[in-house]
């Protein structure tokens, strides 16, 4: 098992190196960094001097090594646009995105898993058909339309909830959280719902499909033939086996939620990383874009690693084989 985790860690390092290379080439080859930084009136000599100072004339490998080394030490460079350190800018924005993503994921799990189980247990019921139809609509409508519709209904027509920003936030050890005030929750609920709806339908359909598959398996038939109470049969035997493949997808989804919160953040003017990324694109702020790429990749790798370890915890077959 130690071997397994070490192997995964090693793979993660390689993935991160590949992403760093990608971010670096973005940095280095998309446009000329020097002309990004300087104005039209800068002389050719000054530009050349700057190029030499910044080490842009060094060989590619040396530059990449320096780039990676700086990153590992937490030095992510400076933004072209605001002249602030990128690390600070990202660190400011991470809490907003993480909270949004986590709440969205929790909404999708709390609703999606029970709905999936219900629709699997009563595949032909009226409620099941209704749920399936509604979620089909949910998948088909683009995220921003759902967001705008929610804003229109709850923000404008009913006036219950704010339509932009994070509301009241509390600062806890450098982490700006909106989870500790009513106001913050009121601001969070609409964007989280918007972001979570798609994940919710996906989770539900996946749980449903897997559960129906498991319910047809031999061990469920055997347990039924032994008269195990249905409650236990469904929630202990079937659900646990259903969750094994579902966890992988949920893990990947969480990475996706973080990465693709861009649209939702922009609709709700949510001050997270996605919004920062959009602003950076508008101003061709390449250092921020590069670091954003690396940070998102890091989340993906981290979540996948956690999922792998969760597998071992759930499935005894993956643990060290004892002599049978």
């Amino acid at each position: 098992m130690v071997y397994f985790i070490l192997k995964r860690l090693l793979q993660s390092v390689f993935v991160m190196l590949a992403v760093a290379l990608l971010a670096f080439s973005l940095f280095r080859f998309v446009g000329d960094p020097v002309s990004q930084m300087t104005g039209v009136e800068t002389s050719v000599e000054d530009r050349e001097r700057l190029r030499e100072e910044l080490g842009l004339n060094d060989p590619f490998i040396a530059q990449f090594a320096r780039f990676t080394g700086d990153m590992l030490q937490g030095d992510f460079g400076f933004s072209y646009r605001t002249r602030q350190p990128v690390a600070e800018m990202i660190a400011d924005r991470i809490p907003a995105t993480l909270e949004l993503g986590t709440v969205a994921l929790i909404i999708s799990l709390i609703v999606g898993i029970p709905a999936g189980v219900y629709t699997a247990l009563r595949p032909r019921g009226f409620i099941t058909q209704t749920i399936l139809m509604t979620t089909l609509v949910g998948v088909s409508i683009p995220t921003f339309v759902i967001g705008i519709m929610l804003i229109f209904l709850f923000g404008v027509q009913l006036g219950w909830l704010p339509t932009f920003g994070r509301g009241g936030t509390v600062e806890i050890g450098g982490w700006t959280s909106s989870l500790f005030t009513i106001d913050g929750w009121r601001a969070l609920i609409l964007p989280a719902l918007t972001l979570g709806v798609y994940q919710l339908t996906l989770t539900m359909r996946l749980v449903r499909a897997e559960m129906m598959e498991v319910l047809r398996s031999d061990y469920i038939r055997f347990a039924t033939a032994r008269g195990i109470p249905y409650r236990r049969l469904h929630f202990r035997h079937a659900l646990a086996n259903t969750m094994i493949p579902v966890i992988t997808i949920i893990g990947l989804q969480f990475g996706g939620v973080i990465a693709f919160s861009i649209v939702t953040e922009s609709v709700f003017q949510w001050p997270g990383m996605g919004l920062l990324f959009l602003e950076s694109i508008r101003f061709v702020d390449i250092p921020v874009m590069g670091v954003y790429l690396v940070v998102i990749a890091f989340f993906f790798v981290l979540v996948n690693l956690l999922v792998d370890m969760l597998y071992i915890a759930i499935d005894p077959r993956l643990r060290v084989k004892e002599a049978a």
């Binding site: 398996s217 031999d218 061990y219 038939r221 055997f222 347990a223 039924t224 033939a225 032994r226 008269g227 195990i228 109470p229 249905y230 202990r236 035997h237 646990a240 086996n241 759930i314 499935d315 005894p316 077959r317």
Partner: peptide, 25 residues
């Protein structure tokens, strides 16, 4: 009928590889 299953009538399936829940001891 479900009460009676296991209690009075039980069943053995073909493939012992698949007829036990892999996640429970």
């Amino acid at each position: 009928a479900h009460e009676m299953r296991g209690d009075r009538i039980s069943m053995i399936f073909q493939d012992p590889q698949t007829s036990l829940n892999p996640l429970m001891t």
